[in-house]
Design a protein around this nucleic acid. Structure first.
Lengths: 154, 154
DNA sequence: ATAATATTGTTGTAAATGCAACATATTTTT
DNA sequence: AAAAATATGTTGCATTTACAACAATATTAT
């Protein structure tokens, strides 16, 4: 069986790409509609910083899967908006720029998270929670496997 | 339960985004390694054209989820490389640019598809086929649902 | 009939993104 | 001790991408 699954539109890559693209677009539309001043990437970075206090830039870059250059620029913006603070510290005897979320950053994040939660519930309500759970779980192990294969020098 | 799923890194959006990003990167690396001259987007477009002979640009744009401008540029490149031919035709009494795959385009596509198949099998071998199937199926219904919600004027 | 709206494709532009190169500092190798 | 390699962050640039504006034509509304 399955020998005929030779086309791009039948591949899991296609489903991932399309779904991810749609989801990104939907989130952008939501962010604009409810007047969120952050970009999606800034939000993702801020959220990740909030649960990884004192993380350095490169480690954050690995978590949000952007390169160091982009991560730095996203952090510049977040810092300029007052949502994070950056400070010099050492990690393995090396100077690194660590960061943490600020008070107003936390407030902003909570506000966004509440709205995002609402939206996520809306989006996933047509699929059973069990299915969502299953997809998420499988994607995670899938992703872990991919991370081993992909050469990334962040 | 599930009330604590408030963070971005716990969301299905995060898994989708990260997995899609990794998969794209892996595919890019593969394309370069085996000397494929097409970009991933050109490949996706070519494959979609091959199973939708005589499709017009806007309809193709909807299938590959790019806007009309980008789709046109991708097609320019494919045409310039001789992999597709474009011709003027009508659709609902309107002049449109339709297209079809050429002989050498088909050869190129078959060559790439074989290599992609190999690669896909490698990537998914650590997850059970049933799981891949399940994810793909759920993502599809998920995507269909998203398409109803997202405002896209392609 | 005329005006307004819709369909299709192209061009221009601004933002995002990745990549390579650079600068600095530290560790490892020779 | 000197040289090579590694880690971290930044800058510059080229590519990708989306979005808006435009052009041309056809349909629908007034």
């Amino acid at each position: 069986m399955k020998e005929c699954k030779l086309h791009y539109t039948d591949s899991i890559h296609y489903e991932l790409e399309q779904t991810s693209r749609l989801m990104k677009k939907l989130t952008n539309q939501l962010f604009e509609k409810v007047g969120i001043t952050l970009t999606m990437d800034e939000y993702a970075a801020l959220d990740t910083v909030s649960i990884n206090a004192g993380i350095c830039q490169r480690d954050l870059a690995k978590l949000i899967l952007r390169d160091r250059a982009n991560t730095g620029r996203i952090l510049d913006s977040l810092e300029q908006k007052g949502f994070i603070t950056r400070f010099i510290d050492t990690k393995n005897n090396r100077l690194v720029r660590k960061m943490g979320i600020t008070e107003i950053g936390l407030k902003e994040l909570d506000m966004i998270n509440k709205k995002v939660k609402q939206y996520l519930e809306g989006v996933t309500k047509k699929v059973t929670p069990a299915d969502v759970e299953k997809v998420q779980e499988t994607l995670r192990s899938f992703r872990i496997e991919l991370e081993k294969t992909v050469e990334f020098n962040i």
